[in-house]
Computed example of a mutant assay.
Amino acid sequence: MTILTAIPIPAPSAPGPGARNGSGHRFDPDRRWAASLELEFQLRGSELQASTALTRVRHHGPLRVQRPFYPEGRRGCCHVYLLHPPGGLVSGDLLQIDVSVANGARALLTTPAAAKLYKADSHGVAWGQHTRLSVADGATLEYLPQETIAFDGSRGQQTTTIDVADGGRCLGWEILALGRPASALPFASGHLEQRFLLTRQGRPLWQERQLLDPQHRRFSGHWGQGGATVQATLWAVGLEDAGDAVTLLRQTLPATTRWAVTYRRGVLLLRYLGRERNEAWALCQQAWELLRPTLTGQPASIPRIWLT
């Protein structure tokens, strides 16, 4: 029998003097509202009956998971939905997500809805979201959150750190929409920073830092963002025949100039730069459906939450 432990993480120590309300929250430029979530997946049971179990959950603040789902069978991939009830980040929010997948385990993580990055307050206090993914030898992790929408005036930093052991496999994506053009609310001010670091057995394979500032000439320049309001990055590491995977994507995905795929140093990267959130999502989902059989030996199993 698998025992799932949910252990609250102790709240961080109180900050220094400052304006507070009755609950102790600060409302000055030094405030921080932290939330964290730690997940660990392990393979449990005999060799013939082994299945992936969510064996450890530690949380603090408004970060949770629903119960694990097994739409591919009990011995298949374990699907888990990451829940952030507020639905978005405001000034002072600090989210930390740590996921570890042990040898032989297979996990798929997604979210029930798009995340929102709200306009900074009058102090310009930034938010932060930091995700760390660790994949052991023989393990597989698919990290497929729904898109993130940055409201005009949002300020913050988003980091994604992935360490994959030799023999481990990982596929994931990050889809970012800037502003709400359909509501005539463009991303006209604010400052976002994205950082990615992917290592293989501790060796850096892909490292990237991107600043998004609509006041900078790079944002509108054809040599930079080019005025695009939606961007996406999909990564895959652990493909046995990456050359065939790249060819498959190039021959099968819609023939537009808004995406490109490369393979270097063991990492496949698919990039999208355009203006349509639905187009970016459809592109990434189709690429995942094409790559998953190659990466895991199993056809894509659409998370139910995507269909609701």
Rank of each mutant, 00 (worst) to 15 (best):
M1A: 12
T2V: 13
L4K: 00
A6G: 10
P12W: 10
S13C: 06
S13K: 13
A14R: 09
A14L: 10
G18D: 11
A19W: 14
G22K: 05
G22Y: 11
G24I: 04
G24H: 03
R26N: 06
D28L: 08
D28R: 10
P29H: 02
R31M: 15
Q42H: 06
G45A: 15
S46E: 14
A50I: 10
R58Y: 02
G61L: 13
P62L: 09
P62G: 09
Q66M: 13
E72D: 13
G76H: 12
C77G: 12
L82T: 04
P86R: 07
P86Q: 12
G92P: 05
L94G: 00
Q96S: 10
I97V: 13
D98T: 03
D98V: 02
V99G: 09
S100F: 00
V101C: 11
V101G: 12
G104I: 06
A105N: 12
A105Q: 11
L108N: 06
L108M: 08
L109W: 06
A113P: 14
H123P: 01
H123W: 11
H123E: 07
G124E: 09
V125W: 01
A126G: 02
W127M: 02
G128N: 00
H130F: 03
L133S: 02
V135F: 03
A136D: 15
G138D: 12
A139Q: 15
L141Y: 06
L141I: 09
E142V: 10
Q146H: 13
A150T: 07
F151I: 00
D152K: 05
S154G: 02
R155Q: 14
D166P: 01
G167F: 01
G168F: 11
G172K: 00
G172N: 00
W173T: 12
W173I: 07
L178P: 15
R180D: 08
R180L: 10
S183R: 05
S183G: 04
L185E: 08
P186W: 03
F187D: 13
F187N: 07
A188L: 12
A188N: 10
A188S: 15
S189W: 05
G190R: 02
G190N: 04
H191S: 04
F196M: 14
F196P: 04
L197D: 10
L197F: 11
T199V: 04
R200P: 00
Q201V: 05
P204R: 14
L205M: 15
Q210L: 05
L211N: 01
P214C: 04
H216Y: 07
R217E: 07
F219T: 05
S220Y: 09
H222P: 07
G224H: 15
A228I: 08
A228R: 15
V230Y: 09
Q231G: 09
A236G: 15
L239K: 13
A242M: 03
G243I: 05
L249A: 08
R250H: 11
P254R: 14
P254L: 14
A255R: 13
A255T: 06
T256D: 15
T257A: 13
A260H: 06
V261F: 11
R265Q: 13
G266Q: 03
L269G: 02
Y272P: 09
Y272T: 07
L273K: 08
E276R: 14
E279P: 12
E279T: 14
A280L: 05
A282P: 12
A282L: 15
W288F: 01
E289Q: 07
L290T: 07
L291Y: 12
P293F: 05
T296F: 05
T296E: 05
G297Y: 04
G297T: 01
Q298E: 11
A300Y: 11
S301L: 03
P303S: 01
W306M: 07
